[in-house]
Design a binder for these strands. Structure first.
Lengths: 191, 191
DNA sequence: GAGTCAAATATTATCGATAATCGGTCAAAG
DNA sequence: CTTTGACCGATTATCGATAATATTTGACTC
């Protein structure tokens, strides 16, 4: 699935097959997989579309993500000292991207930061699930909608690093969770 | 996927196609879906197998499930009064099944209890994710391995009902989470 | 212009065929 | 006896065809 596809766009099997120089059947197989992942939705005899994520669903995704990342941070804090340098490097890269106004690079480093924590949790099921949420959202972190500037956003990651590096699981949990909720579309959750 | 399949069992496309009076292609599509859900694993040119869930993965699933159900209970507690009767009915049915020594029925009512809470959270993403975990585990609640008898297990759900019915989100969260961890294979988590 | 209907076209869903791959068996060689 | 290579059957992966379904187009009427 290459660029320039928007929620709601049609995915025509024979056309994709032609573009990929293959036949229809493998395309159907791939679409079934994407459907199971929640990226695509299909109706019988009507074909596949990029699934539309409603604002409500996006908010729900953020709420669940906050819980998962909070837990991941708590687990990661057990090995916080080993993760510290890597996390700080991500923040430094975010700062650099922020100064250059490069929001694409910023988003990449931001994602790498969060992934490092979830990977550092050591729970593979948690990581798979977190990735599933990201695939669903497609725009992994919605930077454009954030009410903060990129410099502030980069800095907002530091309390998470500190809590994890200090091995403080409970603080890491709350800090990471709140960070996600702070960046949720339409502001914070009541939860 | 009808009964009597164990982790590691081969799923032969042409055989399944014959049994279902269809052709290979729809079977391959279905297997792709099951693979995306983590139920099946395939290797290229080697076919599909029912995925083996290791003990470690099962423990990780329980840890993540504890977090999700803890959060679900917290959200459900907002509307706890409305959920109380339904939850109590599930516990009553669990008691009844426990008295009759009917562990299949027990498992069904136990699942219905937990599902009612996750549904009561009002977060559809959370529900989908929780269902995904259950599909992965396949044995939804591992009753046979629990160190408690069924009567005690039925009763162990009451503190969750009480916290939710009282609208106490934080208590519901901790109670539900601990309940899942208490029933995790090989005992509790350090987390 | 709007609405209806029929025909044409596009697309989906499945079929059966075929090429490629893999694993097991057996015979020959060392 | 062990190892190696050839062959065969089972299975996977994809192909191209076809039937079924949905959508679009064009003609006609008001």
């Amino acid at each position: 699935m290459t660029g320039a596809l928007k929620p709601g766009d049609r995915l025509v099997e024979l056309k994709i097959a032609g573009e990929m120089a293959t036949s229809q059947a493998p395309v159907r197989e791939a679409l079934r997989e994407l459907e199971a992942m929640g990226v695509v939705e299909t109706l019988r005899n009507k074909g596949a579309r990029v699934r539309v994520i409603s604002d409500e669903e996006l908010r729900q995704i953020y709420d669940v993500r906050a819980q998962l990342e909070g837990y991941a941070s708590e687990l990661a804090a057990r090995n916080g000292a080993a993760l510290k340098a890597g996390l700080e490097a991500c923040v430094a890269k975010m700062r650099k991207a922020a100064r250059k106004g490069d929001s694409m690079a910023f988003a990449d480093h931001n994602m790498a930061f969060h992934r490092a924590i979830v990977e550092g949790s050591g729970n593979r099921v948690l990581l798979d699930m977190w990735e599933t949420l990201n695939v669903k959202m497609r725009t992994m972190v919605n930077v454009a909608r954030s009410s903060r500037n990129l410099i502030d956003l980069a800095e907002s990651h530091l309390p998470i690093v500190e809590a994890i590096a200090a091995g403080d699981g409970a603080l890491a949990h709350e800090t990471a969770k709140q960070h996600v909720l702070d960046n949720k579309p339409d502001g914070g959750s009541v939860s």
